[in-house]
């Protein structure tokens, strides 16, 4: 019998290079990178204390120049690039610092819900008799609106990041569970998984080695979408006054405060709204691009 040489088939184009070729990954990634930089460098971007109240400069339009006394009583010129709100706080500083809250909420929500969802999804997909029980419970969780849950949580705990994150995580987890479960159910039928069973690979190792790697790409994609949704929901909750307490600047809080004088001073809502929209757009574009590259089912057919 002829000894067949392993044919060198054309190497797979690395995922990284494919990512670099996708325009939506590039644009989305760029926007997200800019937002992260803004959030990280907030104190050094010419901002003032975002909580500083100054009654003398209430409701000023963008570009307002003023001379105010600092803590030591010296007069310093200040430029309010994006104007001030009804308490005389600098909108620019508040918006920049608000990016921190939004990104932290988005990131923690997606990390927590992916971790919990992955764990429950693997269990549901692998332990058949638990599947029905877990999934009905998940259906129940999905029926709880995040906003109602947030109202409940705020009345039990105090308003704050913890309550907001929890309120968003709870309805997101079942979506991750469903995704992971469906991947597990299809992968466990693969002949290579069955081969691993027949060579006696213990179940935890089997899941870790053969099933888990298949969930990574879809979970990265799902994670970005959860992140975008979480940023939006946080803004909504803060806007409604059931999210982050008003002394912490978040985009939702800024808009909530600007709401009453919206007709006269639209900048109070315009700028945080713009940042919110651009951030969510960026994260979503990143997620879309990642899905095109990482999820072969969505691959364009030529």
């Amino acid at each position: 019998m002829a000894v067949a040489d392993a044919t060198p088939v054309r190497p797979r184009v690395s995922a990284f290079r494919q990512l670099a070729r996708s325009t939506s990954v590039l644009i989305g990634g760029f926007i997200v990178a800019v937002m992260v930089t803004i959030a990280a460098l907030a104190p050094w971007l010419g901002t003032r204390d975002p909580a500083e109240v100054n009654p003398s400069v209430r409701n000023k339009l963008p570009g307002y120049e003023a001379t105010i006394r600092d803590d030591e009583g010296k007069k310093v010129p200040v430029s309010y690039r994006l104007g001030t709100d009804s308490l005389g706080r600098d909108i620019y500083s508040r918006v920049v610092y608000g990016a921190r809250v939004s990104l932290i909420v988005g990131l923690t929500v997606s990390l927590i819900s992916i971790s919990i969802g992955l764990l429950i999804g693997l269990v549901a997909g692998y332990i058949r008799w638990l599947d029905g029980i877990i999934m009905r419970f998940m259906d129940g969780l999905m029926a709880i609106p995040a906003i109602l849950l947030a109202i409940g949580l705020v009345s039990v705990f105090r308003a704050g990041i913890f309550a907001v994150v929890l309120a968003i995580v709870v309805p997101e987890v079942p979506r991750v569970v469903r995704l992971v479960r469906s991947i597990v159910l299809s992968i466990r039928e693969e002949p290579y998984v069955e081969s691993a069973i027949t060579v006696g690979t213990p179940t935890p190792l089997l899941i870790f080695r053969h099933v888990l790697p298949n969930t990574v790409a879809p979970l990265i994609v799902q994670g970005t979408f959860i992140c975008a949704a979480a940023i939006l929901i946080e803004a909504i909750l803060s806007f409604l006054g059931i999210g982050i307490p008003p002394e912490i600047p978040t985009w939702g809080n800024i808009m909530a405060e600007g709401r009453t004088l919206f007709r006269v001073f639209p900048h109070n809502i315009l700028y945080p709204g713009l940042f919110l929209a651009v951030t969510v757009l960026g994260v979503n574009m990143l997620g879309d691009g990642l899905r095109d590259v990482l999820d072969p089912k969505m691959e364009r057919r030529g």
């Binding site: 002949p191 069955e194 069973i197 027949t198 060579v199 006696g200 053969h210």
Partner: peptide, 16 residues
């Protein structure tokens, strides 16, 4: 399990 081994039909799916 080691006593019984199986070779599957689809060579493209039987190896991880």
């Amino acid at each position: 399990r080691k006593h019984v081994q199986i070779v599957f039909q689809d060579p493209y799916r039987s190896l991880n």
